[in-house]
Design a protein around this nucleic acid. Structure first.
Lengths: 202, 202, 202, 202
DNA sequence: TATGAATGAGCATTCATTCAT
DNA sequence: GATGAATGAATGCTCATTCAT
């Protein structure tokens, strides 16, 4: 600002942002313990004391990353909550859309996703909370009679989380499948099952 | 003593086994980096050099644990392979049985399971191989027309792995659900889907 | 301070230089294996991590010492190379001068000399190279007819090295003889032999 | 003995001898610190406790090796002492013979030679003693007028030791020159010098 | 805003040596 | 005469973190 106004944020903000970005990548690549503060700052072209100018310690930058991911993720899931009284016809479409949005978010933030899902000590908590939200999200549908009441919703929600997690790593990140496609496949499997109906009816 | 051999396994074998057991627990609890050789031997009532009598280094004992888990797991999955020409009626039962056995194995070896699925650098490889085996295992069923050909088998297999992983951690280990129960629920969801058929057919 | 730079060399350079000096002494006194990094830094009034700030590991500081000695030594011997066409009268003077310079260098760097000649795994190589240089240095003199062609130059050169090495340790280092004196004696012995000519000619 | 009489010495003696032989080689190859008791016994097909049956500790076996070398070496040099009143004509022959015997001894015991000359903490002492013996050995010759009194006998003796040491390593051990040949060359150089007499007399 | 220099605390690994059998 | 099993005591090295500037 003032003289020649720096392009975007103060120099300090830029430095901090850079450190965050690089740290995310390092943590995702090498895990928390496998990542050295010295490596982060080296890649950022800074020195170690500079790091401590912006973050209290190694744990702090990690938590900041996880926290931001967590916040954004829950914003997303909150938005895609199914309103009660939804049309049965648009149901699967709504679910597909929600899933696709989530996958898109993961795809745009692969490092943060990896960290938050697999490296953080609070990963479990995160996933459990996600499962819970999914459970709530779908509970009403059961009441409405859309979903089979015979299925344990808790098991179902956790299953969904596990599968989302896995498909994110094996299909989404390597670029094998796009968010939309993945979402559709999941919905297809879960709604209808995999058994061949024509045989079944024999 | 006296007639050939001490009470149970030679003393050395016992020591090694003890170290393996304790190490598995430590690794499962604190992760690879969070586990100190000194902690392992302390819990075993030994000294550090003794550790190196049985294992080349920290990495080695870890690999030995993972390897043994991997070996046993693949033995199991190989055994529960579906033979071709199986009766359609017994199909879901067979699948349920296979899953139940796997969950039982996990339940009996929680430490090894945690390590191999979440701590090892070869976890991904392990899961991918497991998914592959599941894929193969089910591929014939598609040919036989039991399974809907519309479902991408790769996605399906990976989904299964993800969900098995997740349910193991959240339901099986805490003792919320038993192996059999979990297996049944999974099969139920996947075979039939979760949509309420009566509504759907309206 | 104030105008550019601290008193003498940056603080880091000073530290490194101090470590090198002390390490040289420790290695010379106790050998490579007998020297502990902890002893070096203790004498330098530093802590162990500081050591690793300047040297990759124990081996590295040792090699740096040996390398510097080797470099300086070969600079020296290169300079004192005998030019072709030298006067027969000044020949022995030139050789004496070269030897004296070498002894002076050794005397000024006793620790490095000890290390490089007796502790390094590349000692042999160093001596061989030195012998080779001596050989080359004198080869022309044989052609010019100054030296008796009957003498095997290789044997002669190696002999010189062995004797330099030995006299350095037993006469020079304890201060029994000065560089000049030693050089003169060597030249005397080698040029003329030790047999009493008067008797011989009888 | 008695029943089937073991070929040579008791089993224990054999074991000890084997350990000594192997240890000599290991020490010669890797130095004192570079040699592990565990390596010695492994090559001998024994276990570590067995080692301590025969030697108090690592230092002890090393000293035993050095001691035996030292004893034999001094026997040798004592025998080849020049008697006073020797003929001037046979003088150089006698010296050559003595040197050749020493080289032969070294060649037959390369490991012990290496250890005693380069690895032992008493190497210096050994060489000094050897130099002293040489000095004594030749002192009378000076009195008798055979050797030029202008040469410092101490320097000369030490020179001889250094050169013997060096030629042993570079010419004798690699098989480049035979004991006799080496001895002759040394005597030639030292007695007559290397200067070309014909030029000198110009 | 930034850094050159330094360190406290810790960890994996090694090796000579010994005890009970 | 021999060994399976174990250990006391080091030692090299690393890493997150800080102080003075």
């Amino acid at each position: 600002m003032g003289q020649r106004g720096r392009k975007k944020g103060s120099n300090g903000e830029q430095s901090k942002a850079l450190l965050l970005r690089i740290a995310a990548n390092e943590f995702a690549e090498n895990g928390y313990h496998g990542t050295k503060v010295s490596s982060i700052v080296k890649r950022a072209g800074m020195t170690q004391p500079t790091f401590y100018l912006y973050f209290e310690n190694k744990e702090a930058i990690f938590q900041e990353l996880v926290e931001s991911f967590r916040g954004n993720l829950f914003n997303l899931t909150r938005k895609s909550r199914l309103e009660p009284g939804i049309e049965i016809n648009s149901l699967s479409g709504r679910i597909t859309y929600g899933l696709a949005e989530m996958f898109t978010f993961f795809k745009e933030n692969p490092d943060l996703t990896k960290i938050s899902f697999f490296e953080s000590s609070t990963s479990e908590e995160l996933k459990r909370k996600l499962a819970l939200q999914i459970e709530e999200n779908l509970a009403s549908e059961v009441e409405n009679g859309y979903f089979s009441a015979s299925v344990d919703m808790c098991t179902f929600a956790e299953s969904l989380v596990g599968l989302i997690e896995r498909l994110t790593v094996t299909q989404l990140f390597p670029g094998i499948k796009e968010p939309n496609r993945l979402a559709e496949e999941i919905v297809d499997i879960f709604l209808n099952g995999v058994i061949n109906k024509s045989i079944k009816e024999e």
